[in-house]
Structures are given as C-alpha cells and as structure tokens.
C-alpha cells in the first residue's frame, strides 16, 4: 500500500522490491485474517443449526459445551422425515415454488420480449412501471389482499383463505416484476441483427422468441428461475397471514408455528427443520452459484 513511499525512503536499492512484496504479503495476510473473521460471523448460525440438529434433546438441555456434539445422532432427521405433517409442509412448499416458477416464466418471458423488442404505445412506461412494482413490498399489500380474498369468497363462494393454492396467486406478485425486469435487460442486450436476420428468413415472433431469444438469453432465464424459486421458497409473510391449518402450511411457516408448541421449544427438531428448509436454496446455490450471483447483481446494474 505504501509502495511509493517505500521507494522514496530507500531509493534505488534492491531492498525496495523486498519491502514492497513484504508490504503486499502483509496486506494479504491482513485480508485473509479479516476474511476468516467475517466468515466465522457469517457461518456461525448455519453451522450451529447443524450442530444442534445432530444432538439429542438430553444433550441440548445438558449443561455442557453447546458448541460441541458429544453423542451425534440422526434421530431428529429420522423423526422429521417420517412425520407426515413435516412431509406435507415440504410437499406444499415444493408444489407452490415449482408452480410459481412456471407461472412466473410464462408471464414474464413473453412480456419481457414484447417490452424489449416490440415497441408499442406505453411500452416504455410499462417497463418502468414493472420496475416500480418490484419496489412495492409485500408488507404493504398483505392486509388489502387479505380483505380482497375474503370479499371474493363472499361474492363467489370460492374460499381462498387457508388454501395453499391461493399462494399461487400471491407469489407471482413478488417474482414476476423482478424476473420481467431482468429479462428485459438480457433481451435488450441481444443484438438486433439477430432477430432481423430471422425475420428476413420468414420467422414469426413466436419462432424468434423460442428459437433465438430464449436460447441466447438462457443464462438470464436460469438466473430468473433461481430467483423466482428462492423467493417463493423463502416467503414467510403471505403464508403466515393466509394459511392457518397444518395441512395447508408451507415449510417456513410450518416450522415456526407447529414445531414451537406453546412454551416448549424442541430445538433439536426446529433446527433440523430449519436446516432442511434451507437445503433446497443452498443446494441450488452450490451448483449454480454464478447464475445466482448474476441474477442478484443484474437487478441493480442492468437497469
């Protein structure tokens, strides 16, 4: 960092290179030291989740070192994975998340294509509007939506509250604006010559979209898919407000509301459930990290 000043004080000696590299090495060591500190800070909760999940209840309530496992056991995992209630949560979460991904893609990919390539009246305003929608948090909308669903039941007799499939209506409001937005960015970066060439060859818009845009913008599509999946999987407020009975709950809410029974906290099981709930996003992240990060940074930098 003080290469220049080092050169100044000890001019024109071989020593200079030595001190520079020593400086560099020192800076590097410092960087690694702080990275280790921050990594400990960032990884402590998940690691502690894992530690607790392989403990027995006796060990959890014993007055021993909580950071160490003396008698590791998989009892918590066995118990949760064979509990029909927990498997229902898992199934609900999986169905909801996968369906939301499909719905999101069906809505946002054609819309992004139209907004990025086929200029029509109000298309620029609509693109900005989509982005604005992304900025409206769900915490602002859940109360009116709750009332709307209740009114809808009174009018049509179709019950939407306390039905897991009603979440399929709610989650797209969180995923579609962002996915449309980043797909607009990806589509806009495709050279115009490509679709003009296809038009010359007599391709129609559907063919341009499916044969050219989707394959070329596949990385963006994967990033958007990952985003939609992780957002739906992690969503907590909507299911907490809209679903109540145990067979309708999704995983995050199910763990929070059913595993905590009154004042009895079965921490071994809660941590196991939390870890299993965190597993799908973590696995996706582990395998598709670059797409995940691309989607993350695209939101703010593509615009």
């Amino acid at each position: 960092m003080t290469a220049a000043s080092a050169a100044h004080t000890v001019p024109a000696t071989p020593r200079k290179y030595g001190s520079m590299s020593r400086d560099r090495r020192w800076a590097l060591c410092l960087s690694y030291f702080f990275l280790v500190v921050f990594a400990i800070f960032f990884l402590t909760p998940p690691v502690y989740m894992f530690i607790t999940s392989i403990k027995t209840s006796q060990e959890i309530s014993a007055a021993v070192n909580p950071w160490w496992v003396y008698n590791p056991s998989l009892a918590n995992y066995v118990e949760l994975l064979s509990s029909p209630v927990f498997l229902t949560f898992f199934r609900n979460s999986a169905i909801v998340s996968v369906s939301v991904v499909v719905i999101t893609m069906l809505i946002s990919v054609p819309a992004a294509f139209a907004l990025s390539r086929m200029k029509f009246w109000g298309s620029a305003t609509l693109a900005t509007g989509v982005f604005l929608t992304y900025l409206i948090p769900e915490t602002l909308l859940f109360i009116p939506l709750f009332k709307m669903f209740a009114t809808f039941r009174d009018w049509t007799g179709i019950e939407l509250i306390n039905r897991w499939w009603a979440l399929l209506l709610l989650y797209p409001t969180l995923t579609v604006p962002f996915c449309t937005w980043i797909m607009i960015g990806y589509f806009a970066s495709i050279p115009k010559e490509l679709d003009e060439a296809a038009l010359m060859d007599g391709a129609n818009y559907r063919q341009i979209l499916t044969r050219i845009f989707i394959p070329v913008a596949l990385p963006g599509l994967i990033a958007a898919t990952i985003f939609a999946f992780t957002v739906s999987w992690a969503q907590f407020l909507y299911p907490l407000a809209f679903t109540t009975s145990a067979d309708q709950l999704v995983l995050p809410v199910g763990i929070v509301t059913t595993l905590i029974k009154g004042d009895v906290f079965n921490w071994g099981q809660i941590m196991t459930g939390a870890l299993l709930g965190a597993a799908p996003p973590l696995i996706i992240y582990a395998f598709l990290m670059d797409y995940y990060i691309a989607g993350l940074t695209a939101g703010a930098t593509k615009g």
Binding site: F42, M49, T52, W233, M271
Partner: peptide, 26 residues
C-alpha cells in the same frame, strides 16, 4: 461463495438459528 451463504438461506430459517443462539437459558 462462502460469504454469501447468509443471503441464500431463507430469512425465516436463519432467524430461527439466531433465536436459538439468543435463547434465554441455553
């Protein structure tokens, strides 16, 4: 990759881990 893990875990799940780390008696 390692430092982004807190962002990847669903917030509800990781907050449970913190709740347990903050537990009054344990």
């Amino acid at each position: 990759g390692m430092l982004l893990v807190p962002w990847v875990i669903p917030p509800a799940m990781s907050t449970l881990a913190w709740l347990w780390l903050f537990d009054p008696s344990y």
